[in-house]
Design a protein around this nucleic acid. Sequence first.
DNA 1: ATAATAAGTGTAAATCGTACACAAAAAATC
DNA 2: GATTTTTTGTGTACGATTTACACTTATTAT
Lengths: 228, 228
Amino acid sequence: MYEHTDKERLLLAVDCIVFGFDGEKLKILLIKRGFEPEKGKWSLVGGFLKKNEVLHDAATRILTLYTGLDDVYMEQVGTFSDIDRDPEERTVSTAYYALINIKNHSQKLNRQFSARWFSVEEAPPLIFDHDKMVRYALDRLKIKAETEPIGFELLPEKFTMRQLQNLYEAIWNVSLDKRNFISKVRSLDILEKLDEKDMTSSRKGSFLYRFDAEKYRTVERNRASLNL
Amino acid sequence: MYEHTDKERLLLAVDCIVFGFDGEKLKILLIKRGFEPEKGKWSLVGGFLKKNEVLHDAATRILTLYTGLDDVYMEQVGTFSDIDRDPEERTVSTAYYALINIKNHSQKLNRQFSARWFSVEEAPPLIFDHDKMVRYALDRLKIKAETEPIGFELLPEKFTMRQLQNLYEAIWNVSLDKRNFISKVRSLDILEKLDEKDMTSSRKGSFLYRFDAEKYRTVERNRASLNL
DNA sequence: ATAATAAGTGTAAATCGTACACAAAAAATC
DNA sequence: GATTTTTTGTGTACGATTTACACTTATTAT
């Protein structure tokens, strides 16, 4: 019950799992901590909730601080409360995941915070319970990708079919049949095929596509399933 | 960044959306608050996180306090942080939902806390942001029900096919075809048909079923989909 | 005997998912 | 300039799943 003696005030942190995609592999943004505790080890980007701030704003603030980006897709993953997760003081942390497009991503972050992209499989061990947060965030991303088209957030404006397929293969850690993938994506009718070709990937070149924002929103509203 | 001046300690509450099922409708457990603020209004059951307690334990503790039940299925829904959600003091709250079987449910709770079951559609307006919490919890329950057999938690040991169908109809707010429903459920092979009949619902009587815990766990492990 | 009520049961059509292989374009190399 | 290399791009057939759909049965109440 709401008895006064039980009320304990504690620190509430926010940690962000920043997912990015480079056309090949799914990546997360990590920083080498320049401060105690655990100075020198890799961690998620994070900070503390301020008095007159809601969690989502705190997550956005932290993301902007570390990446220079705003207007980023973010979603709450969950709140982690193990007693000794932070050795300094009892701290509960709410994790958010963000989806960002690596190409839009200024390089200043590297200099300031020793931030680096790691592919999800090759990331180093993280401090505190951050590995657990990443696992939860990945699970959420996998589920999200089943019912909502997340490419808008993770891919550059123009991309090839191969890149789109790589994205889903990376998220679900599966390999998909090219023909089935393409026909499924086509049936969703949210892509616009451009006349341009990307010539970097092959001699033949591959056509570029773009999301059709209009159709895309319709699909989002209908929660159309992307069962690949 | 983790600068000391930004650290603000605040209260962390836990609120529980307790779902129950009476064979007909999906219900939630609400209490009429006997304490300020908002004394006399309806709210979720809740409390504050203690210093040496993790969130899940706090949610369990609160549920046991109000219902006398332990060993209940619970899952974190999310953390709600609107600045003025609690008028007394800045309080962030993590919501959990619980699934309980109303029939197992002792009646002592009613006496002690003016707790009552309300069908989800007919619930009164709740204090603070509790209505929002209920909406989120319902969304989570809907998604959960798509991939995991939740009947074990919500139904009495023996139940009729009609009750099972009512449960899914109530959660998803749809009407399902009886024949398709039954053949789908049968194909999952997690139910045991008993020789007993329930005679309360019709003159003919309807056979009772029971979950086969062994098979049930296999299905859970395989994350078999219950696409009804 | 008859009426009323809910239980119980099967099939056909449509949709969706999956498996699968070869030709075309262009550049690089000889 | 012919050949090799590489990646793109495309269609179909089969099986599985989902959906739509209606009548009989058992029993009690009248």
